[in-house]
């Protein structure tokens, strides 16, 4: 391998890491909000949904990248959607086979992974322009970032709303459950709170950068 082939294109590690933090799909890009809010009422549901999305994202990004030179431009979106729908069907049946209860809890939201803008977004913006290996890394990073975001929401909502985490009781029987947090409004409030924290951090960093510039 010559150095020219190594230097070509973006750095693989960067492609992987950016999805975890700098371009986190949930907190920074605010993509794929429907599942983020709908199924994060417990930590377990959030984890399952995150892993299901990760699988679909990884597989469809790889396939889209493999066929990127075969698909005519005009029909590319339809092709991507069909590829995604195929893998979502696989995941749907897989979860049903693993745990019927989990399948019931997630309900139609597994099927709705098809219209998660994150997946189509990555297919169009990244996978269709890069090699399969890079596309898979990017998908893995984004998928893990998405799972992380879901877990952040799900665990907060479960701890506050039911006083437990992954079904394990934390505060004993006397805990007054804050039921509204596991109901739909809690989803909006928790995500809003996380976004506030991220905004606050961003503002502080920006202020620090300005101060550093002035000092220099």
């Amino acid at each position: 391998m010559t150095s020219a082939t190594i230097d070509q294109g973006p750095n693989p590690t960067d492609e992987f890491v950016k999805g975890l933090w700098k371009q986190n799909p949930v907190f920074v890009q605010v993509l794929g909000m429907c599942p983020v809010l709908a199924v994060t009422n417990t930590g377990l549901n959030a984890l399952a949904m995150g892993l299901a999305t990760l699988f679909v994202l990884l597989m469809s990004s790889t396939v889209v990248s493999l066929i990127r030179n075969l698909v005519p431009k005009q029909v590319r979106i339809v092709t991507y959607i069909l590829v995604i729908a195929t893998f979502v069907t696989v995941v749907d049946y897989l979860i049903q086979a693993i745990s019927v209860d989990l399948h019931k809890a997630l309900g139609a939201f597994i099927s709705l992974i098809v219209v998660n803008c994150l997946i189509l977004g990555r297919a169009e913006a990244f996978a269709s322009k890069n090699t399969p290996a890079l596309a898979a890394l990017d998908a893995l990073g984004m998928g893990l970032g998405f799972t992380l975001g879901l877990l952040c929401l799900g665990s907060v909502r479960e701890v506050v709303g039911m006083g437990s985490l992954f079904g394990v009781s934390l505060f004993g029987a006397h805990y007054q459950q804050w039921v509204v947090m596991i109901l739909p409004p809690g989803g909006f409030f928790t995500l809003a709170a996380w976004l506030l924290i991220f905004n606050h951090r961003k503002q502080k960093q920006a202020a620090a950068a300005v101060a550093a510039e002035e000092a220099a």
């Binding site: 409004p185 809690g186 989803g187 909006f188 409030f189 995500l191 809003a192 976004l195 506030l196 905004n199």
Partner: peptide
């Protein structure tokens, strides 16, 4: 931005 919209949506 989004945070405010989400809070209102929650209410």
């Amino acid at each position: 931005g989004t945070a405010l919209t989400l809070l209102v949506a929650g209410i």
